[in-house]
Structures are given as structure tokens and as C-alpha cells.
């Protein structure tokens, strides 16, 4: 392991912040979901990096779990986006505020 774990972690952090910026900037729900995928991947990088560091397969198991959760989330998220925005002209998450207090 020639590259120090800190480097992987900094990369992971960079991806996470990128994803966050995406979530904040974009108002297109599809882009929101894409950004979330990016953030989940950032998490996966850290998990597998620690797995390598500690020589333990548990980190990889968690990474696989995260992937499954991501797949499920995308299925539902896309289903909602399709159901809601099929009949609307604009894609804007801010319009989904009928449940506000």
C-alpha cells in the first residue's frame, strides 16, 4: 500500500463535497439523484480503503450493501420523478412543496 490511506480519504472527501454542491445547486431532480450517487461512491471509496488498510473484508461487504441501497433508491427516486414530472413542463424539486408546514 504505497499510497497513504489519507490520500484515499481526501479523495473521498472531495467526491462527497462535489456531490453536496450538486445537491445544493441543481434544481433538476434527476441531477439531484446523480449527485447523491456521487456521494454514495465517495463513501464506498472510504470503506474499501479501510478494508485494505485493516485487511478485513467487512468494508467490502458494506460497500456492496451501499450499492444495493443505492440501486433501490434510484429505482424509487426515478419512479417518483417519472410519476410526478411526466405531466409538468419544468423539472424543479422546489415545486414539490405541497407537504410544507
Amino acid at each position: 500500500m504505497n499510497v497513504p490511506i489519507e490520500a484515499y480519504l481526501m479523495l473521498s472527501l472531495g467526491l462527497l463535497v462535489l456531490g453536496l454542491i450538486g445537491v445544493m445547486r441543481r434544481r433538476n431532480p434527476l441531477m439531484l439523484l446523480l449527485s447523491v450517487e456521487l456521494m454514495l461512491n465517495a463513501g464506498n471509496v472510504s470503506l474499501i480503503g479501510f478494508s485494505r488498510l485493516w485487511d478485513d473484508p467487512s468494508g467490502q461487504v458494506f460497500a456492496l450493501v451501499v450499492m444495493v441501497v443505492a440501486a433501490a433508491e434510484v429505482v424509487i427516486g426515478l419512479g417518483l420523478v417519472v410519476a410526478i414530472f411526466r405531466s409538468r413542463s419544468n423539472l424543479d424539486v422546489d415545486e414539490l412543496s405541497s407537504m410544507k408546514g
Partner: peptide, 18 residues
């Protein structure tokens, strides 16, 4: 005050969460 924070905007919730 509290109800103002319940804007119904997903992104606002994300801000607060972050």
C-alpha cells in the same frame, strides 16, 4: 417560527441537514 422551517423544499432540508 418552526413552521417557516417546514418549507417543503427538499433542498432546504438538505441544507439544514448538512
Amino acid at each position: 417560527v418552526v413552521s417557516a422551517s417546514q418549507s417543503g423544499m427538499v433542498r432546504a432540508y438538505a441544507f439544514w441537514m448538512v
